[in-house]
Write a protein that binds this DNA or RNA. Structure first.
Lengths: 197, 197
DNA sequence: GTCTATATTAGGATAGAC
DNA sequence: GTCTATCCTAATATAGAC
């Protein structure tokens, strides 16, 4: 990797870390520069603005996420298995780029005011469409309930899945795969004890 | 209500609205003053700082939430019904003060840096304790599953419940009570179609 | 590609008149 | 209780030397 790419990714890495911990608005370009080990003016050789850094972090993340979703959709699975795979793919994407994922969850207010918001919005719409299609498929073939609106179910799952990046810690024996399995089981089977009689 | 109380609550109302829409850090005291119809200096007659406004919004909200939880705990209910009532109480609290609820969800980064953070943290701990106690009770009497950690279940429910304030709109025929019932049913019974054979 | 130096803007907060 | 006027600080961003 060329040296300027190293520096650029160092800026992205440090920025993502600070944005996730402190919020975008409260993070200054001087802090980012400090973390990288340059002076603040030098950042502007690599990015035209602070917003551009935010934008690159978030769009890269959404790009990776969409790639994972496409893989899930290409496999031939039952709606139930596909939903579980969407959950797993989302959790793996968040685990691969936790800072980007946190920023995406926390900074919708900020992103909405950015000039590049349309691209983010389009990616978000595609993500939502992916989930809803799987849910509709499961309703059609009788594997999911039809007495609860798909959108309502989707939003509950989505928020539970995305927000887990705020509390899940990959250290320890509790793996992402286990987390995904527990999540899928709660949302599909419920937390009430199984009736065995 | 005395006139100075009117003005003070107008400041709180306008601030909450702006904080929820734009984020705390991106909202200026001048914007708040504009919204209220005074000049920015006048705000400081009612509050010592912008942080103090944030703090009052959030602590009042948490106070109301704790009141609702206490009511739920005082009733004699099964763990399942109590969990459902906790969900309903949370959704009603968020619906009563949607801006405060949104701020509380979005601005953890900001709140953590405030001098009054300890009070918020204590209230948050009590809220968590309330949920966990009900979950443990249900595990003990056999109504909830024991193969998934209570904390994991709690966090999924919590995030799904709290975040609904971002998308739920009280207009229209879909009521809070219905939302609460759907949420409880998804989390307890699951979204998979009921097996009827 | 990074530095120095600085322009420019805007933020939170305050003092004192009314 | 509000206004006027302003202090002080800190932010993003730029220009030009090295």
């Amino acid at each position: 990797m060329a040296p300027q790419q190293d520096r650029k990714s160092a800026i992205l890495r440090s920025s993502a870390d600070l944005f996730a911990r402190q919020g975008v608005a409260s993070t200054t370009v001087r802090q980012i520069a400090d973390e990288v080990g340059v002076l603040s003016g030098s950042l502007y050789h690599h990015f035209p603005s602070k917003d551009a850094i935010v934008n690159e972090i978030v769009t890269t993340y959404l790009e990776h996420l969409r790639g994972r979703y496409r893989e899930v959709l290409s496999a031939n699975l039952s709606p139930r298995d596909r939903l579980e795979e969407l959950i797993t793919a989302s959790l793996l994407a968040a685990d691969a780029e936790p800072n980007a994922s946190i920023i995406y969850q926390n900074e919708m207010n900020y992103l909405r005011e950015m000039p590049q918001y349309e691209a983010v919005k389009a990616a978000a719409a595609e993500v939502q469409q992916t989930w809803l299609a799987v849910i509709e498929e499961g309703r059609a073939d009788g594997s999911f309930r039809t007495d609860i609106e798909p959108r309502v179910f989707y939003r509950f799952v989505r928020d539970a899945v995305w927000l887990s990046v705020r509390w899940y810690r990959p250290e320890g024996p509790y793996t992402i795969e286990r987390l995904a399995a527990d999540c899928a089981s709660i949302f599909l089977d419920g937390y009430a004890a199984f009736d065995l009689d």
